[in-house]
Design a protein around this nucleic acid. Sequence first.
DNA 1: CTGAAAGCGCTTACAG
DNA 2: CTGAAAGCGCTTACAG
Lengths: 328, 328
Amino acid sequence: MSTVESRAATIYDVARRAGVSKSTASRVLTGQQRVSPEAVEQVKRAAVELGYVRNPAALAMSTSNGTRVVIGVASPRSQLVVDDYLCRVVATAARVCAAERIGVGLEAFALNGPDSFDPLARDPTVHGVLLINTTESVLNAVDHRFAGRVVSIGVGSNLVPAIDVDNYLGARAIMCRLVDSGRRRIAMVTGPRWMPCLDRMTRAYTQVMSAAGLPKRTVVGGFTAESGQRATDAILRRWPDVDAVFAVCDATALGVIATLRARHIDVPGDVAVAGFDDTELAYYAELTTATHPVEAIAEAATRAVLAARATRPPDMYFPSQLVARRTA
Amino acid sequence: MSTVESRAATIYDVARRAGVSKSTASRVLTGQQRVSPEAVEQVKRAAVELGYVRNPAALAMSTSNGTRVVIGVASPRSQLVVDDYLCRVVATAARVCAAERIGVGLEAFALNGPDSFDPLARDPTVHGVLLINTTESVLNAVDHRFAGRVVSIGVGSNLVPAIDVDNYLGARAIMCRLVDSGRRRIAMVTGPRWMPCLDRMTRAYTQVMSAAGLPKRTVVGGFTAESGQRATDAILRRWPDVDAVFAVCDATALGVIATLRARHIDVPGDVAVAGFDDTELAYYAELTTATHPVEAIAEAATRAVLAARATRPPDMYFPSQLVARRTA
DNA sequence: CTGAAAGCGCTTACAG
DNA sequence: CTGAAAGCGCTTACAG
């Protein structure tokens, strides 16, 4: 339908075609009240016919709307580690934002300090923020002016909605499978202590173990195979009778398996191992795990930020399904 | 050094601090001639002291500079398939662009037709384009006005520089290893026919085979394990005596290995298998492969697009190293 | 070499 | 309910 022009249609083109002023066209397009039904009708039609998409650069100039959605990754030493998970979030956001001609940026910021959010808050090019690996300290630093334009893929706050995987129920499903299949001396490899979105998984572990009258055994890990290796060393040293290990992510679980097998401990014969995320690696390693719909989460979070509603959107937790394979 | 303000510094702030006009400040900041050394000095200092980063939204308004770098993925049926590789490119671009407050977008566009580039060319929010999986037809559609602002991660053209892995030498190294280790009936699983950046790999295969006086055997594959499975079926049907398979990517090679082993064909005893990319999966599968420095390539390509030089940058081919493991 | 002015596309008080 | 005008931050002819 859109006419082929040498340049994209502007609001001026739309207004002229609809026979109204720029102001009226703008009111219609921004969905304001106080416009006659006819004007609404004309403008909307003109916009469709011209294939109009508003220029976010111009919007950013007149409001402080911003031209980009920043993916803000909280990390110690504010150094950016780009793993698989983060890549998928960024790519999804870039795809979703493209339809509105908004760009995506990727930045690390400091874990602590009340000013951690300042650079973003002061940057007029920032339309909204997707928080990754949030901490309470970061959440507290979020400016009120950002309400409705920040969401957290992780834990939320009064101001910031959480949109994340339901890793509590996912972890529960895994733990129940371990217990139901007769495992009793189950250790858990957690993530870094400062990452509160993993607390839900630790809670699931603790509750299932308590309910079954079993002793809790946790060690701190990271998101890498190497951390799984170190964790396994620690577990075997402290609890040589361990008969199952549950790790917060697949990469770690793979490191656990490799270390166990290197010590001639059979998986799953001697020790069952389960991860979380259901990555491609897990499929090849026949690893028991739980799904993590990263793209769906990232898309929902991005849309929430783009919408920039005045009110805080509700939290959303995406279901995680148990994927039973050979290792547990 | 930068003073903490409630808003980011504008060029007006810089000009005032330097004691010159906005125009002069702009000339200095854009690196034009015709400015006194003193003015240059003052303005530069003021910019540093204020932590000035120019607002790309405003730039985009006055020039047609654009606020985002679009990652344009050519694909049949213009449907976007986001794989690992693409994710890494997007995340890298998003990280590099963030420093200049530019955003990144991810879009698919049609493989054919002289108009495929039009929507991008007409969009004033587009600062530059990173082409992925380019074809000649797409390259021909690139507008002259985009010279210096498009680079191709793949094949290039007169107008568009290529920045990519040197998959010719990488493939050669793999082929030489296969031949040197005594393999003689070597099949190659190529990529989709329309993807010209893979021609360099096919050429390496052909040349090594010719030089060794061996017969060429190629089948078409994709970038997935399933395509490796189908390719293996075809290879075993046509050349049951095959003793090595070289696939254009690790995912395909893994599919090849799985299929061979399912048929009780030993890898590497009966058939050696090699891939390309050196992904994490390859490490776990002990797959012989060649490195593919995706992040370095994406960073170089992004910087070239951001620089937006008037002249076409030179082509760049990043070296690929052989990674010898168990499968070949 | 330098400044005042116009303009990019949009929104939003301000008058009607 | 509607239009004319100002303004967001920048660059670039246009005069000096």
